[in-house]
């Protein structure tokens, strides 16, 4: 466990050093957030509430999306894949630490920096421009926090799993990119999923993607409450467990393959 926190700390410090990148990311987040908010204003036009989400809620959703891109690593994550191709994986697998935890510790450091430097600052910044929705009461705040952590865990265990494809093919980058594109749509990052027709929703919930982002924002916006909310949180937990399990099985198969190939 000490090793875990040590790795988290190192990763945290490393990500803190990307000064210019953080500032650049923030500026980009603000810009896109404003465009997306403007699109919602134009879509709502005269309507006040659509599918339980008010215009104020939709604008908050646009802000949250930008705030969480870095934290959830929405665009790409090839780090594990790269170690397979460079061969660094050999020494990582020999470390006295579970391989999944080894990456999770580092991703936690990365997520923490992104949450603090990008997530919080983006939300504060938007609060100056827009009238945002904020969670009400201790219960909702706790639920949002729990869901945020679970959302990161879904995202990480999914990213870990798909990166393992690099054990089998030298073309993993293309496959990963394809999956990331799917995740933008089906996680509700491009539009809140409940704005879509019923059939799109049904397809989405067959995949892990909504549990990374859509669940978090629905709890945040107060669309999901009471037993429904508890169910959504449990659903996130279920996906985390399944993804971790799948990850362990695939990892074992992959390692066996690497050993056979002498890679």
């Amino acid at each position: 466990m000490r090793l875990f926190w040590e790795l988290t700390k190192i990763s945290f410090q490393r990500h803190l050093t990307y000064r210019a990148a953080t500032v650049a990311g923030l500026v980009t987040n603000f810009f896109f957030g404003i465009l997306r908010a403007a699109i919602f204003v134009a879509l709502y036009d005269l309507q006040t509430e659509v599918e339980g989400i008010t215009l104020q809620g939709a604008i908050t959703y646009a802000a949250l999306g930008q705030a969480l891109i870095g934290y959830l690593c929405m665009f790409s994550w090839f780090e594990l894949m790269n170690t397979v191709y460079t061969g660094d994986i050999a020494s990582d697998l020999l470390k006295p630490m579970n391989y999944f935890s080894f990456w999770m510790a580092q991703d936690l450091g990365r997520a923490a920096v992104n949450f603090l430097l990008r997530g919080i600052i983006v939300m504060i910044g938007y609060a100056f421009i827009f009238d945002l929705v904020w969670p009400r009461g201790a219960a909702q705040i706790i639920a949002v926090a729990v869901s945020l952590v679970l959302g990161w865990l879904v995202s990480f265990s999914w990213r870990f799993l798909i990166n393992l494809t690099s054990f089998w093919t030298p073309n993993a980058r293309g496959i990963l990119r394809f999956f990331f594109v799917l995740s933008w749509f089906f996680s509700g990052f491009l539009m809140p999923l409940r704005f879509f027709p019923e059939w799109v929703l049904r397809i989405s919930y067959l995949m892990p993607f909504p549990h990374m982002f859509n669940t978090v924002i629905e709890i945040y916006l107060g669309v999901l409450v009471g037993p429904e909310m508890i169910l959504a949180l449990l659903n996130q937990v279920l996906w985390i467990l399944s993804l971790i399990l799948a990850g362990q099985i695939v990892l074992r198969l992959g390692v066996r393959r690497l050993v056979i190939l002498g890679g």
Binding site: Q47, E51, R173, G174, L182, M191, P197
Partner: peptide
């Protein structure tokens, strides 16, 4: 071909995310 499909999909899904909500708005 994977990347070709990927780039096509980005454009398609971005458009879809707008087209599919037009029914509501």
């Amino acid at each position: 071909f994977m990347e070709l499909a990927g780039t096509a999909l980005i454009t398609l899904l971005e458009y879809a995310s707008l087209a599919l909500v037009f029914a509501r708005f």
